[in-house]
Design a protein around this nucleic acid. Structure first.
Length: 683
DNA sequence: GGTTATTATTTTTTT
DNA sequence: AATAATAACC
């Protein structure tokens, strides 16, 4: 029996309102996750609702993981196991894996990432002869935008997104058609397709949609303000039978408009679901009053919003601090120094987070943490599977799984070198197009097109076919190790790089990859097949992979400082938060300023950052920052500069030691220089 | 035909 | 600073 007595009146009302549509308007830190997790526990434990009829959807892996862990803590693994707590994308993949043949794809489809997508668009633009050059990334971004708006390559030219006098749109039209055709031919889908195709499936096969809406009797959507039209429609399909939908969100934290999120979904919820019960959570349990005051004042400047003012019962003497720094190295130095100082005073590293607008801000801080030997973890950023070595190895797995996957095939055909370069490849590609046969089948059927390369090609085809069989019979991890040996990949790395440090790092990545395959095999036992492994690599971030290592002590936060973007910090909280780079052109970002776009989303990002902090908030900006390798002057962000009440935070200039008394500054400088000399002596 | 040196270009945020 | 496109080289 789960007791709801730990919830406040509003929270309890939300947890107990299990039937029908419910909208929970939850300000930052108002115990939103707590409310939904208790709601789930209440359903399972007190109302005897079956776990497999409950679906909880969120956006990021991080959020889904947090939900899973907290439900697990409340219910234990036996009762919580069958509950589906997923991201929109993993839900989509799950459905597509079962049903995609209905859309004319094979069930062993590949999922393409951004670099694959751009390669295809590049090829399309090469074929699209025009005197003007088009930017592949921009064209790809437009295609992605169209998909998220639900517009197919056929509909584009007739839609209001198409401007007949814009050459870009004509190029995009061509590229979009080319792109979709190729994906289908390669038996591959992209990230946008995961939702797009799931929806297409539901539209074309109402009986399939119905079966899922019958299965999921109770549906919850987290961060509802970030849903785009596709996700909204998906939810509509799923709730059709039982109409038990509970959405949670906060319009002030809507930060995904760039990928099609539409705040109107939350603002007009009552229109779409007329009997909806609306519950507002306004008391903040997270932060201390001075932090909330700053947050309220920052977000107040946004005009279009549901007026709300967060309040909490936690007073504090300490106001948020703003530090001016010299450059990014100085910023990193001072922050890490403060981290170490806090740790020395008994602070826990797991209670601290360093948040930034973009991933490019992380490296200097990372370097400094490493130098000072402070343990840290980076969320997001360059994913493990974005590394070249990992991509190579994964491409082998893709081809073994889905030989039609031409992008993966082309990547590994000459890795390790088999003497098959561009010119050779072209010959086989030509045949592939003529016969409308996947490239791999061409290699298999007509290896002699280029007689000089035929032996290499035959050996390659044999290798793939050999492993295709092997993966069906013997264990996953064993085969992956064997494969890496078979292609002599470690030796290939040795030959590629003469820098021994690089070789070392890349070898390490390979080992890490083997390691993760081993862990996966041990954890999933009989379910550890190639398909599941590849899916996991594609959809889960490296954080989740680490989770396999320590499945027992999951509720103990690791003793590491967390580094991440403002976007991925949403939904999380830390006692001490560093908000770095609060500068014009960083936050708000240059792109939004120069494009003359609405900066209100940037302000919401700032708001999200501030409201992550429970006790201490330290914001920083640099007077100088390296852009394209050049030092450029920078200034304080308008989000702080425009505040009328300057007493909301304390401002100190660390470059002039403005935060210290003269006496302290003198001592500080002395110790600083002696440390510097000391560290030079050690080198 | 394949590899490497040179030059041009570029940075948001996530699945 | 890092990466991709292009040109020059083996």
């Amino acid at each position: 029996m789960i007791s709801l007595s730990g919830l406040n009146d509003k929270q309890r009302e939300a947890a107990e309102q299990v039937e029908g549509p419910v909208l929970i308007l939850a300000g930052a830190g108002s115990g939103k996750t707590r409310t939904i997790t208790y709601r789930i526990a209440h359903m399972v434990d007190n109302l005897a609702i079956k776990g497999d009829s409950i679906l909880g959807v969120s956006f990021t892996n991080k959020a889904a993981k947090e939900m899973r862990e907290r439900v697990h803590t409340l219910l234990g693994s036996r009762k919580s196991r069958s509950i589906s707590l997923l991201t929109f994308h993993s839900l989509g993949v799950r459905i597509l894996k079962k049903e995609i043949t209905k859309l004319g794809y094979q069930e062993n489809f590949s999922i393409y990432d951004q670099s694959d997508q751009i390669s295809i668009v590049r090829e399309a633009l090469k074929l699209y002869h025009a005197e003007k050059k088009f930017d592949q990334k921009e064209v790809m971004a437009k295609i992605s935008m169209l998909k998220n708006a639900g517009i197919t390559e056929m509909d584009f030219a007739d839609s209001h997104h198409f401007k007949p006098d814009d050459p870009y749109d004509h190029a995009t039209e061509y590229a979009y058609r080319f792109y979709q055709e190729k994906l289908k031919f390669f038996n591959a889908i992209d990230f946008d397709d995961i939702l797009f195709l799931t929806l297409k499936l539901f539209r074309q096969n109402p009986e399939v949609a119905k079966s899922y809406s019958e299965k999921f009797k109770y549906i919850m959507v987290d961060e509802y303000q970030d849903t785009n039209p596709l996700q909204f429609e998906l939810i509509t399909h799923l709730t059709k039978t039982h109409n038990n939908l509970c959405v949670v969100g906060d319009d002030d934290q809507s930060i995904y408009a760039f990928r099609g999120a539409d705040v109107r979904n939350i603002l007009d919820f009552e229109k779409s679901f007329p009997e909806a019960k609306v519950i507002k959570l306004e008391e903040n349990y997270r932060s201390v009053t001075p932090i909330l005051e700053l947050a309220n004042n920052v977000i107040k400047e946004n005009k279009k919003r549901r007026e709300k003012t967060l309040w909490s019962q936690k007073p504090s003497e300490h106001k948020p601090i703003l530090w001016a720094m010299g450059d990014t190295d100085h910023e990193a130095e001072v922050i890490v120094e403060e981290v170490v100082r806090h740790q020395g005073n008994g602070g826990h590293l797991g209670d601290m987070a360093i948040l930034y607008r973009s991933n490019t801000q992380a490296p200097p801080i990372e370097d400094q943490l490493r130098l000072s030997q402070v343990p840290y973890q980076i969320i997001g950023g360059q994913k493990f599977y974005d590394k070249k070595e990992v991509k190579d190895l994964m491409s082998y797995l893709f081809v073994i799984l889905n030989p039609s996957d031409q992008m993966a095939l082309r990547r590994i055909l000459n890795i390790p070198h088999r003497g098959i370069g561009n010119a050779t490849l072209e010959k086989y590609l030509k045949k592939s197009e003529e016969e409308n046969l996947p490239l791999f089948s061409v290699l298999e059927k007509y290896p002699d097109i280029d007689p000089a390369r035929a032996t290499g090609i035959k050996t390659f085809v044999q290798l793939i076919n050999k492993y295709k069989k092997k993966f069906q019979t013997s264990t996953l991890s064993e085969n992956i190790s064997l494969l890496i040996e078979d292609i002599d990949y470690l030796n290939f790395i040795d030959k590629q790089y003469d820098n021994s440090k690089q070789v070392e790092r890349r070898r390490n990545d390979v080992m890490h990859f083997i390691e993760s395959a081993n862990r996966f095999t041990n954890y999933y036992k009989d379910n550890a097949n190639l398909k599941n492994f590849v899916e996991r690599l594609l959809l889960q971030d490296s954080q989740d992979k680490d989770k396999l290592e320590d499945d027992e002590d999951s509720d103990v936060r690791k003793n590491e400082v967390t580094l991440m973007t403002l976007h991925s910090s949403k939904g999380l909280e830390f006692r001490k938060v560093f908000l770095v780079g609060i500068e014009e052109e960083t936050l708000p970002h240059k792109k939004t300023i120069t494009m003359g776009e609405d900066i209100s989303e940037e302000r919401r990002l700032c708001y999200v950052g501030i409201t992550r902090a429970q006790e201490t908030l330290i914001m920083t900006y640099c007077k100088q920052r390296k852009i394209y390798g050049k030092d450029l002057p920078r200034s304080k962000s308008r989000f702080l500069n425009d505040l009328i009440d300057k007493n909301l935070f304390i401002e100190q200039d660390r470059t002039t030691f403005g935060h210290m008394s003269e006496e302290e500054a003198k001592d500080y400088k002395k110790s600083f220089f002696s440390n510097l000399l000391g560290s030079l002596g050690e080198e």
